[in-house]
Design a protein around this nucleic acid. Structure first.
Length: 152
DNA sequence: GCCAACGTTGGC
DNA sequence: GCCAACGTTGGC
């Protein structure tokens, strides 16, 4: 099983929205590195840290689980969607998405500032220079520690 | 294939 | 709003 971190802007889609919806399609990813991971590496049963970005207190807010593996992102074909891509052909889709299911919301936020402060997280992709990917793999020990802090 | 210009992400 | 750090585009 693999562990991931997915970023979302809470004013766009927050952990509370996922708690309400239970299952959500993770669509709209338009970056090739992220696409490759969604298509090839994100598997059913994988655990995902839900991260709030571009907000007053960026950080990890909860956990969800992958319930559907990479399949073509149909929003790319829809000119009325938020991220249409006329270059993506339904017969040869360029973009992929997965479905995630709500698992838990942390008792408290595990903030980016906190993660940066702790030496245990050195080397984590989240705090590497220039990291702008909206999803990336997380080590199991980092995943477990963040869950522990969030639930404490 | 190179590179300048431009767009985007995301913390602060 | 600013800026660093990318990624993408398109001319050559």
């Amino acid at each position: 099983m693999n562990y991931w971190l997915f970023k979302s802007e809470p004013n766009c889609y927050s952990i509370d929205d996922l708690q309400k919806d239970k299952i959500q399609t993770w669509d709209g990813i338009r970056n090739y590195q992220a696409r490759n991971m969604l298509r090839d590496d994100v598997k059913i049963g994988d655990k995902v840290l839900f991260y709030h970005s571009s907000c007053p207190e960026p950080g990890v807010v909860g956990v969800c689980e992958v319930v559907k593996e990479g399949y073509p992102d149909s929003t790319a074909f829809d000119p009325k969607s938020e991220h249409p891509d006329p270059k993506s052909d339904p017969d040869k889709p360029r973009w992929f998405m997965v479905d995630v299911q709500f698992e838990k919301k942390f008792e408290r936020l595990v903030s980016l500032a906190q993660i940066k402060e702790m030496s245990e997280f050195s080397g984590m992709k989240l705090i590497q220079r220039g990291n702008r990917l909206s999803l990336f793999p997380v080590d199991k020990n980092h995943f477990d520690l963040i869950c522990k802090i969030g639930q404490a």
